[in-house]
Each structure stands twice: as structure tokens, then as C-alpha cells.
Write a protein that binds this DNA or RNA. Structure first.
Lengths: 221, 221, 221, 221
DNA sequence: AATGAATGAGGATTCATTCAT
DNA sequence: TATGAATGAATCCTCATTCAT
């Protein structure tokens, strides 16, 4: 394995480890299967090498989530900053938020076990810094959202993102958290219960924005 | 420990194990702490005895979730069957759904790791039976809901329950999945981000119902 | 493996584990080689079984030392309690103390790494209780010694035992702490330097007692 | 870091590494904390560089002990060579031997784990050369001692040094081998058992010399 | 000569499950 | 039916040493 010498190369290697970790996790999305041994193999590195870049297994995990969160917010921000000239309705905003669904599924997988992970072996400061970073971004993006949708009251933008986040987690867990559940859902008797993650999330988001708007109107009248 | 001889006594013992399991889990709601050893101690039984009533640890867990689901639906059904004479608005239905919040938190704790658990060591048939049972109840209760709220389209009742369920899971995980996260959220910088589980869930539900109604009206006009 | 059911059987099994541990340690007297894996194999038990009897590896070690200390003091006490009718001189006391040399070598091996062991993974209370127990016995035996040798001043009995103990440790480390050192000492150039553990210890003890007596006489005159 | 080119510069660098090693070890006198990584950091060098000067970690350790031994003998020799004109009694010799107590403690720390270290990973030739060197010095200094104290029989000088050495090791291990033991010894119940390293060593040495003299006199009469 | 990134063997400990009593 | 002693697979992390630059 080529040695990462410059700090640029090291950043790249760190990224490569995270990419491998993500791929490994997606292949078997359970924290139990997320072993350092498997991770090292996936990254094509020695086990000890991982510990040059991350102090604990949990730190790898947290870095992974952090990166995905960043990408998610980046994409939403970009969508909200676009200006095709037309008016911003709830539907248009929902479309922007839904555009980044591919991050959603990944995040949902990761988030479903975030709590369990953070509980163990993560220095308090690390966990705090992580949470603060995410929240700062949520507020910034939330304000962007409020500027686009005037019927949102102050703070509702960030709140909407938090709810979206909650729904992503929840729906994901009902959708296909595991191969077993996937197999189960193929049972004909459960046809009506099948949850199409993307469709459901979109519908929910649309309904939520419609509800917020309606409440704003109710209040105004 | 008294021997359970009749099949009635055995059912009771099974129930007692589940009660103890729930109490133990609530005391320390992490799957890692949910060990068969702790469970046996909580139930005042020998470890081997548990295996007379459940084949695996995961089966205990699934039975636990199943029982809580049942209690939850029972309570919602009772609320929807009540008739104080007044009209059924979205707000009134939301109030009924929120009334069983105490089940929500318990369920949310359990559900947040359901996926991980079911993934491992649960016979397919067991998982399937569980899912079918839950879905059957969701449909029955969903229809009750549709009868009360005429603006709901067919199927939207069950869907609403699924969504509620998803939000419970998601919000819970953002709320207080762990002692560490609770400590983190006490940070002043995160004040605005604090999620009040009950309040948020209520607001979300209200907004969702309002949105559904608004969409029904939009369509009608 | 037969199950240890009664508390008598359990005490026996605990003892058997310690015996196996001692044998394994004597075969390769380094703490590094003292692995739980090796210990389990030596005892003919599963690794997990060891943890039913001892909470940590260090606890096994401490129990081992404790047992040897006990045996050592028992033997000295017995020797001092004997009464062949003759007078008690320094030489006679030295002979009694030397009689238990076979415990000395074992203890010396163990004691040479006691400090390192206690440093890690031993609850403070456990270490404290251990030390207190040893000291209590040292004082009791020290007083016996003072009764036999009138030229000893109060407290010198226990002190003598501590010094004996120190010399055992030190001489042992110079004697044959390892196979490598043993091989080295066979070098003809080092013939004069060879330390015969038992002989040296005896000589030293004799000289020390003679010195104490001489000082007592100096003082008296 | 400046390159060491001449062989003089290389010897100096070797010495600098040993100085750093000693400082690091004294700061945390446990072999576990004595890692090559810590050593490299202490010496301000890269880890790989250490291997240019020493083949293994154990070789560093052995070189360290060797240097301290040398300094110890140097100091004793100097003390014995002094001549203030007065007569040489056992007490005066003891005072000279005790003068170098500051080496004792350092040596004791190192020696307490010497056996364990040498056992592993030291080429036989290296260990042999080390032992021979130490013994040669012990004999030379022993003879100096015999010249000063006529009551010593031939060979007893070196023997006395070996015993002193043994007592240093043993007393040290009873004195303060670890932070935990230090804490334990603060327990009031153990007050009487507390070992004052310097005082005890002095007393023991005095008693030993007195005993040797007394035996010589016994024999003469 | 100097570096430090990469390696991987090695070990303590936990816990679901079995099975003899 | 009830028990709990016995089991051993499974996993995180450390650290001496190597070697490409």
C-alpha cells in the first residue's frame, strides 16, 4: 500500500477509509457487522492503520455520519439557492428537499444506530462538537428555507428539517432496515402495508408543508 | 421458584418474563444492556428457564414489542370508539392519538433497535407472523379512523398510523436516545435545537391532519 | 468437565484453577506468558469459566499470591510454635525461617511482578484488602519471633520478616529469573558470581540475626 | 534533526537517546509505559531512528541499566578511594555505600523488571556481555571494599555488593512500586508496615556489616 | 542518517446458548 | 420444569518492527 505522506494524501486516505466504511456498512447495515476487521479488509489496509486515522471505531462511524450530513445540507442549499425565476411554493421546496433522497437512505441507515454508537466510547467533547456542527448547518439551511417560503414562521425552517430528518429515520426503519424485513414485505398479505420510502417521504413532506401553509392562513383570517 | 404446570400458568409465567424484560429495558434502554443474564435476574428465574419460553433472545424482544403494539392499538381503538356526541375534527382525532403517548415512548425505545434485532437470529416465520399481526391491527384501526374523519381517503387511515409510528421512532431518536445525547443537549448553544418529544409529536400530527384536510379541500374545489 | 455445584465443589474448583495457574506460571514465570488462554488450557476449562471464579486476570494472580503467603506464614508459625526444649538462638530461628524455602522461590517469582500487576485492573479495595491481610499476618508472626528471640526489640520481628521478604525478591531476581539468565550464569567467567539462592539467603539471614544481636549487646554494654 | 555523521556524533546521539529513555522511564516507571513510541517522542526522534542505534526495545533497556550500573560503581569506587585519614569501620563503609542512594532508586526501578525484559527478545550474546560487564565491576569494587574492611574474607566484598543490590531491588518493590501501592500504604492500618526505602536500606546495611564483623570475631576467638 | 506510515500478531473479556442434574 | 455452571466464538485495540522515501 502506497504511503500517505503529505497531509493532502493523508486527507485522501482518511476519505478512502470512510468510503470503504460506507460501502461495507451499506452491504450489511448493522453496527454489529461493522467491525474494524471487516473495515480494514474493505479498505485494503492493515487493522492498525485504521487507528492512525481514527482513535476508535465509533470515531470512524461519527466521521461517516458527519460527512453524509454535510453532503446532504450542501445539496439542499444548492437547490434552494438556484433561481429558475418562478415563485417558491411548498411544492417546489418539497421537490428540492426530495431531490437529495439518495443521501436520505444512506443517512437513515446510519442514523438508526447513531444513538447506540454515541453512547459508547465516544468522548463527550467529540459528540458535542458533532451535534453542534449538525445543528449549525440545520439552522443556516433552515433560514434559507424560510426566505424561500414566507408562510414559514421564524424557526420553522430548521424545525422542518429536523422533522424531515425524523421522518427519514422512522420511515427507513419501517421500509427496509434489513434483508429479513425485505423478504417479509414480499408477502402478498402485506401488500397494502408496503412502504415506498421515497414516495411516502415525498407525500408526507407535501402534506406537512400544505398543513403549515393552511395553519398560517387559518391564523391570518 | 414455583413450577408452572398448567398451560395457563405457563402463559402467566411468559407474561411475567416479558414484564420483567420491559422493566429492565426501560431502566437501561440499550440493547447492549439487554442481556439474557440481566433478564433472568430481573425475572427472578434461572437463565436456562428463559429458554423454555423463548427460543432466542431476539424472540423475547419481538414478543415484547408485539405486546406493546397491542396495548397501543387497544388504547387508540378505545379512544376512537368513544362517542361524546361532538363532531370528529382532525384536532379531536389528534388528541386521541396523542393520548397514548406513554406507549409511544416505550415503543419508540424498542422500535429504534427493532431492525437491528430482527436482522439477526430471528426465524423468518416468526418475523413474518409478527409483521402480519401488526399490519392487520394497523388496518383495522386505520379503518376506524377513516370512519371518524371523512376527509381521509381509503387507506389513508392506516397510512397515517404508519407515519405516526415513523415519526415516533424518528423523533425519539432525536430526543433522548442516550444519556450522552441528553447531556449534550444541555449545551446552551443547542437550546433552539432541543426536541420536546411530546410537544413536537403533537404539533406534527396536527399539521399533518391539517395538511390532509387541506389537500382534500383543494381537490374538492 | 464435571460441574461444580455445591459451594464446597466450587471452592475446590477455584483451588484447582489456582493450582493450574501456579503450575503454568512456574513453567514460564513471566506475567506476559500468564495468559487467560493458557490458564484455561492448563486448568482444562473453557476461557469463560475462569471468569465465573475470578473477575479479572489480575484477581487470579492476587489470589495466587495470597494463598502462597498464607502457606508461608503457616509454616513459619508452626516452626516457631514447636518446642524441642532447647534454647532459641538466632541460628535456630534462622533455620526455622529457612525451612520454608520452597515457598520462598515460588513467592519470589510471583512477587517480582506483583507491583506491575496491581498497578493495572485491580480495584483499589481488593488491593488494599490483600495488603492488609498480608501485613496482619506479618505482625502476628513477627510477635511470635520476638517472643522466641529476646534480643529483638519490639517491632523488629515484623521488620525482619519484611526484610527477609525483600531479600527473597532481590536474590531471586539475581538468581534465576529466566532461562536466559540461567544459561548465562553457566559461563565459566561468571562462576564466582553465581548466586545459590538457598545458601545465600541462609547466610544473609544468619548474618542479619547475628548483627541484630551484636547491636543489642553493644547497646547493653 | 541534525544528522550524526562522525562516530563521535553517533555515540553522543546514542547517549542522548538513553538520557531521554531514562527521563521517560522515571516519569512513568512501568515497563508497559516504556514504549518505543514514547521513547522516540521523548528523544525528539523518529521511531525508525531508534532502530539505527538499538536493535530492539530490550536492547535500549539493557543499555540503560548498564549505564546506571557503571555510574553506581564509579561513585562507590570514588568514595572508597577517598582517604580522610581516619580508620575504616563498618559504619564508614556503609556511609559510602549509602551515599549513592540516588542511583539506587533509579536502578531499583529498572532492575525490578530486568528479569522479565531479558527473558524476551534479547540475543544471548548481548545478555551475556551485559552480565559479564556488571560482574567484573562488582569484583573490582568488592576487592576495594575488602582492602578497606579487613574483617571481610576474600570474596565477601563482591558478595556484599550483590546482597546490597538484592536488598535494593527487594526493598524497592515493597516501598513504592506503583501509584496504587503508594495509595494503599497511606491507609492508617498499615502505618507500621510502611517501608522507608533509604532508612531501611541503611539500617540493613549497618546490621549486615555488624553481623559480618561479629562473625569474624566469633571465629577469631 | 532520518522518518513515520503501515502492519498484524496477540490477548482480555463478554454473553448467548447448552445440558447435566 | 427449573437451574446455573460451562462453553468458546467473537471483537477492539496496542505496539514493536519494517521499509519506502
Amino acid at each position: 500500500m502506497q504511503r500517505a505522506r503529505s497531509s493532502e494524501e493523508k486527507r485522501e486516505r482518511r476519505g478512502a477509509i470512510l468510503d470503504a466504511a460506507l460501502a461495507a456498512y451499506e452491504a450489511d447495515p448493522s453496527f454489529a457487522a461493522f467491525t474494524m476487521d471487516a473495515l480494514a479488509r474493505a479498505a485494503g489496509l492493515g487493522k492498525g492503520t485504521l487507528y492512525l486515522y481514527f482513535r476508535t471505531k465509533e470515531e470512524v462511524f461519527l466521521a461517516l455520519v458527519d460527512a453524509r450530513f454535510g453532503a446532504w445540507f450542501d445539496e439542499i442549499d444548492a437547490g434552494l439557492d438556484e433561481d429558475g425565476g418562478g415563485a417558491w411554493t411548498g411544492g417546489r421546496a418539497a421537490a428540492v428537499l426530495m431531490r437529495s433522497t439518495r443521501w436520505h437512505t444512506t443517512l437513515a441507515r446510519l442514523l438508526s444506530i447513531l444513538g447506540t454508537v454515541v453512547e459508547h466510547n465516544v468522548p463527550f467533547e467529540t459528540a458535542l462538537a458533532f451535534k453542534r456542527g449538525v445543528m449549525a448547518r440545520a439552522h443556516a439551511t433552515g433560514e434559507r428555507l424560510e426566505r424561500r417560503l414566507p408562510f414559514l414562521r421564524p424557526g420553522q425552517g430548521a424545525r422542518l428539517l429536523v422533522w424531515l430528518h425524523a421522518m427519514v429515520i422512522g420511515l427507513w426503519q419501517l421500509h427496509e432496515p434489513s434483508a429479513t424485513i425485505r423478504r417479509i414485505m414480499q408477502d402478498p398479505a402485506l401488500e397494502g402495508a408496503r412502504v415506498d420510502f421515497g414516495r411516502d417521504l415525498g407525500t408526507l413532506l407535501r402534506i406537512m408543508l400544505r398543513g403549515m401553509q393552511a395553519e398560517a392562513e387559518d391564523e391570518a383570517s
